[in-house]
Amino acid sequence: MLVPPVSQDAQVINNLYLILYVFSAIVFILVEGLLIFSVVKFRRRAANDAPVQVHGHAGLETVWTILPMVLVAVIFLFSVNSMGQLQATGTFNDPLNHVHGVNDQVAIKRVSEAKKVDVVINVTARQWVWQFKYADGFIVTQELVVPENKTVRLDIVSADVIHAWWVPALGGMIYVNPGEMSHVWFNAPAGMYYGQCNVFCGLAHSQMLSNVKVLPQADYDAWVAQQKTK
């Protein structure tokens, strides 16, 4: 039911979601089933019903303490495993690499060495627009245009309040805090992917779109050439 994932990260998240969905369904059916059964089966039939006064059962209480703990531990391990996969793709929200002070040169060097990328775009978030500054010097707003199947890195800063970068199909939501720089990596096939600011940032928050248009390389080159002549 998630937005169809197109990036590797979104795929990892989607897989974890499906696993947890199965666990959830089991717990849901168990609890609701027991609830409905006990309400229907044991409803009062006579005004003077006098049920046996049971105060508890140590064994049962232990079982329904231990079993959820095991379940939670399993879910925790699945989640940690997914985090490892996200880290391997380079996009995991690891603030040691991915959120740091704007002028933290050590962190910037670490980020640039962390993963080989094809395109780097400087992004500035401000109330209520995303600005994309390309290596060739031109700036566009509202819609990010990138080439297909290329690894893209966004270096994002905020000019005012906290914003959040998020394109659901590409995964990798991250806050953009004033005074800090956040990074997002992705690699996507051609297509149009919707996104918008995901932290309430004031009056026109709902209009702060961050759509991503991924073009085939030839179209992208033509688009860049056109932007440069503007």
């Binding site: 974890l16 849901f28 989640s79 939501m173």
Partner: peptide
């Protein structure tokens, strides 16, 4: 249901997709 979704979104990768 609220309890189940609470555990699910407590998983950091899921939270990266459903936060806010």
């Amino acid at each position: 249901i609220g309890g189940i979704t609470g555990v699910i979104q407590g998983a950091i990768p899921i939270d990266m997709q459903v936060h806010n």
